[in-house]
Structures are given as structure tokens and as C-alpha cells.
Design a protein around this nucleic acid. Structure first.
Lengths: 190, 190
DNA sequence: CAGCTTGCCTAAAAGTATTAGGCAGTTGCA
DNA sequence: TGCAACTGCCTAATACTTTTAGGCAAGCTG
């Protein structure tokens, strides 16, 4: 019996690839075993259960996304940073739809806190350093940016903007223009 | 054998209730059969397959959501309309998390077009009548609003804003203030 | 090289999805 | 009203996924 050299990390990575190929909800312990040409039960030495697999894929995706975002943010500020950061999310979702779907998985709070979720929040806040926003408006703005990025990318990958003019890229550009303008001119509390 | 009086509509409704109780991804043909105290195979007279069930629940949710939104929009304009419309989405997601998750299901284009998706887009556009936006900026704004509403509600129901100040309601209010300000003062194309 | 760990295996049980074919309760028509 | 057709729910059967238990041998450890 040749040992294949499975590890939780390799399984998560292969699961992520599988997700990109067939969709995150089609990722199954059985399919993964097939991919390694190994019996299903063997995976249970490395995975607690199928939820564990999904969670690992989600954490992998969040990590990759945070790495890319950190890269994009380095050396940029203001609108440049805003656009670069936003593009990371959008590009990642387009390149890796399965991974992006995985990143949307509801994690229990401790798992999420242990993962890259915190980095994402910190980086979003870092973008706002280029704008003049005091608390609590800064937090409101963080949440707005998170909502727009996630919302737009979700709707676009769901096909919501296809088959209609103007194309999705143009709206994306103009929406980022608008957000930049909004952040530079955040309305006072009424 | 007492006839239970199953119909696709009753199954979709019961499926929606089940989704709200146990989560949309736990909605299964078997669970639904159990709920009606009927054998699983019996449901296949009314449903093509389990995907058909999920699609019907999604369409039901989209319809309910559109009905509520239409109601909220009646007799309102400008910022009032914006807030009322946005609150419909947020409240629906909080009251009916399973249904809201169902509404996010990727539908193939024809199914989506046949359903209430179009109404949603039209209503979002109706809100913008209270603002002075010409095409193509109007479409950009429609997409921005959709993204913010969907994104915020997703992140909030995923627990993204809990356990941190300020509370989610306050951010929501201020984000809607900000969007209103942005729509009243949409930046020109650079 | 002897022994121990452990990675992958077989076996088995439980749940879900789906199809085929049957019977009885209901409907519709004379 | 009576009978025929329909159709709603059933049993039976197959296939796939998840998960647990227990076994054997590969390869590291001394």
C-alpha cells in the first residue's frame, strides 16, 4: 500500500482546487478521495469530518486573499490603495470562484478569529488612513467598504450584471470613484 | 392512505419554513418528507429533484421580498424611500435567514428572468427617481445600492458586526445617510 | 533489526437522492 | 349513480456520501 502522503494542508489545497473546478458546494470528502486515488475512509485520519474540510478550505482562501491584499496595499495610499484593495477581491473571486465561495462560509466566531478575518478588517481600516475619518465614522466606513466589495463581487459572480450595459468593469470603476468621493466628503451626523 | 394534499407550492412554503428553522443548506427532500409525515419518494411527484426544491424556495423568497419592497416604496420618495427599501432587505434577512440565504441561490438566467429578479432591479431604479442621475450613472448607482444592501446584510447575518462597537444598527443608519449624500452629490466622470 | 507509530485499508451502518412500478382514493363522464 | 381513468402516495431497489471500527504493513526510532 503506497503511502500517498496526505496531510490536512494538502487536502485543503486540493479541496480548494476542486472547488474552483466544480463549485464549492460540490466539494465532498468522496470526490477528494477520488482525486488522490485513495479510499474515502483514509481521509478521516486527517479530517475530523466533512465540515472540517470545508472550514480548512475557507481558511485557506481567507489567508490567500489576505496575502494578496497585503501585497496590493504595500506602498499605496488614498484612492490608489482603495482601488488596488478592491481589485484584489474582485480578481480573486473571478480567478477562484470556488475559493471565494468558500471564504463566505459561516465560521464559528473562534475559528474566524483564529483565521485571517482580523487581517482583512485591519487592512480595510488601513485604507482609511488616507482619508480624514474619526471614530465612529471610521468603523461605519470600514463596514461600508466591506459591504460594497463583498456585495458587488457576489452579485457579479452570480451573473447579476451580465447581459446588460454598461459592463461590469465600468460600473466597478465608477463605484470606486464614488466611494473615494464619499470618503473624502463623509457627511456629518445629522 | 390518507392523501396529504401536497403541491409544489406547499412544498416550497414548507421548505422555506424549514430553511428558516435549520438553515437553507440543511433543507433536504428527506427532511421535507418527514415534516409532512410522508415517504420521500412521494415528493418526486411534485418536485423534479432536490435542486428543483431549492429553486422553488429561492423564487418564493425573491417574490416575498419584492412584495415587501413594493409595499415599502409606495408613497415614499428620496431618502425616505431609500431607507424604507433598505430596511426591507435587512429586516427580511433577520426575520427569515433561511429564506434570505435561498434568495442568494445561483439561478440559471432564464429561471431568474422568469422570477422576481426583474422587479427588484426596477424598484431599485425607482428609488433613484428621487435623485438627479442620468445614465449611465444611474445604472452604476443601482448596482452600488444592490451591492451595499446585499453585502451589508450578508456580513451582518454572518455575524461580522457582532461583538464590536458601534452596533450594527448605528452603522446601518449612518451608511444610509452616506449613500443618500452620495446620490445627491454623485461625482462626475473624471 | 526489533518494535512502535500511523497511514491507508476493508467492512459496515446510516442518511440522502432518485427511479420504477403498484394500489387505492378521487374525479369526471355517461 | 356507477365505472373508468387518473394521480397521489406507497414499496422496493440502486447508488452515492458520511462516518466509525478495527486491521495490516511501511517506515521511523532506538
Amino acid at each position: 500500500m503506497a503511502r500517498v502522503g496526505l496531510t490536512p494542508e494538502r487536502l485543503a489545497l486540493a479541496g480548494a482546487e476542486l472547488a474552483d473546478e466544480v463549485g464549492f458546494d460540490q466539494v465532498t470528502v468522496s470526490a477528494l478521495a477520488r482525486r488522490f486515488d485513495v479510499k474515502v475512509a483514509s481521509l478521516y485520519s486527517h479530517l475530523k469530518n466533512s465540515q472540517d474540510l470545508r472550514t480548512r478550505i475557507a481558511l485557506l482562501a481567507l489567508e490567500e486573499l489576505a496575502d494578496r491584499a497585503a501585497d496590493a496595499l504595500a506602498g499605496r495610499a488614498g484612492k490608489d490603495a482603495l482601488i488596488a484593495f478592491a481589485d484584489v477581491y474582485r480578481d480573486y473571486a473571478r480567478e477562484h470562484p470556488g475559493r471565494y465561495a468558500a471564504a463566505q462560509l459561516r465560521l464559528d466566531p473562534e475559528t474566524a478569529a483564529a483565521g485571517a478575518g482580523v487581517r482583512h478588517a485591519q487592512m480595510t481600516r488601513a485604507i482609511l488612513r488616507g482619508y480624514d475619518l474619526a471614530e465612529p465614522d471610521q468603523t461605519h466606513a470600514v463596514r461600508l467598504l466591506g459591504s460594497v466589495f463583498h456585495g458587488y463581487v457576489s452579485l457579479e459572480t452570480a451573473g447579476g450584471f451580465s447581459h446588460s450595459a454598461p459592463d461590469a468593469q465600468e460600473s466597478w470603476t465608477r463605484i470606486l470613484d464614488a466611494l473615494d468621493a464619499l470618503l473624502r466628503n463623509w457627511p456629518p451626523t445629522p
